[in-house]
Amino acid sequence: MTTAPADITPYNLRQRIRAGEHTGNTSGYSQGFVQGNLVILPKDWANEFLQFCQRNPKPCPLVGMSSGPGKYLLPDLGENLDIRSDLPSYRIFRNGEMVEEVTDISDYWQDDLVTFVLGCSFSFEEALIADGLEVRNVTEGVNVPMYRTNIDCKPAGSFSGQMVVSMRPFKAADAIRSVQICTRFPSVHGAPVHLGDPSLIGIEDINRTDFGDPVTINSDELPVFWACGVTPQVALEQAKPPFCITHSPGCMLVTDVPNSKLAVL
């Protein structure tokens, strides 16, 4: 019997990713476990980025860090978790510009690199589904739609920029329910930051995403927007560190940490 994506253990999924057997997005995989956005920076840039996360906890909720510069194993987040090989796709940035996407960063690794893992909306999607809400990107089997906005983040040193949001459409009653559910998960972006008219947060065309894929929005549905962990990539574009690495949007680090540990009861 073939294991369904939702049922594969985080460890087994990471092993498949490491072997090159899974290279796509991770939405819907290993349900019940925290997925994380990734930012890797040289030590000289790490303190300012940490401060940026602390000042902007909704788009940048920190769930883990490496134990020191050059450390690529993250035992607190997963068994035999090697940050160099255990995400499906990485983005390499030089001077704030993405120059390459790769499936393994071992050849790029440096002894001064510090890893940050930020909470991801894929974790709260499980809670929405468990409550009977349809999550459209999961239903349609695509990456969640993500957009740049005009919502300013609080700057920290060299880091600044505007928030990126992810979107899921719901009928009005379900939109209200989604707010109630996600408020319990501040470590994975928490409650939505906007409901309704996309133009009010600087999105001109809801059908044209900046990251991810568009999804169907029915005439009786509202778009609901959450702060998104792709926001640091916008901040990196502004700060222009000489070198950094992030996840590719939708291609997350799947950890061994249960989502239930992040819920605020």
Rank of each mutant, 00 (worst) to 15 (best):
N259Y: 06
D210Q: 09
P61R: 07
N47H: 15
L77K: 02
T246Q: 00
F124H: 15
M167Q: 13
D174C: 04
N218Q: 14
R148K: 12
V102I: 14
N56H: 10
V164G: 13
S66L: 05
M252G: 04
F52A: 06
S160R: 15
L77T: 08
E97P: 01
D76W: 03
A4G: 10
K240F: 01
I92S: 00
D111S: 15
Q233T: 04
S158D: 13
D44E: 15
M98R: 14
E79Y: 13
V102E: 01
E79F: 06
P223Y: 05
G36R: 03
P223Q: 11
R91N: 13
G78E: 06
N150D: 13
D220R: 08
D205T: 04
D44W: 11
V142H: 00
C53G: 05
P169I: 11
T216M: 11
A263F: 03
C228R: 01
F225I: 04
G20V: 14
E204T: 15
S166Q: 09
D174S: 09
N80I: 05
F159D: 08
A46W: 04
V224R: 00
T183D: 14
A191E: 13
T115Q: 01
I92P: 00
C60G: 07
T149A: 05
P69D: 02
H247Y: 10
I129S: 11
Y11F: 14
S158A: 13
D205N: 15
D104W: 12
F225R: 01
K43P: 01
V264T: 12
F49A: 05
P249F: 02
Q54W: 06
P57V: 07
D112Q: 09
D44Q: 15
L118V: 04
D210W: 06
S219Y: 11
V215C: 08
K240N: 08
G250R: 10
E79H: 12
I92D: 00
E48G: 02
F122R: 11
N56F: 02
R184T: 02
L41D: 01
E126R: 07
I8V: 14
L74G: 05
V164Q: 08
V135E: 04
T3A: 06
G78M: 09
P241D: 07
F225N: 01
D213A: 10
H194G: 07
V138Y: 06
D82W: 06
A172I: 02
G70S: 10
K71D: 04
I129T: 10
D213S: 15
S123K: 13
D82I: 07
C182A: 11
G28Y: 09
M1F: 08
G20T: 12
Q110D: 14
T103P: 03
F243R: 01
M163P: 09
V138S: 09
G32T: 09
K154Y: 11
L128N: 01
I105P: 01
T103M: 07
N12A: 14
P57D: 09
T209L: 04
L236E: 01
N218M: 13
G141I: 03
T26N: 12
P10H: 10
E101N: 12
C120R: 12
N143V: 08
A227M: 09
A235F: 03
T231C: 02
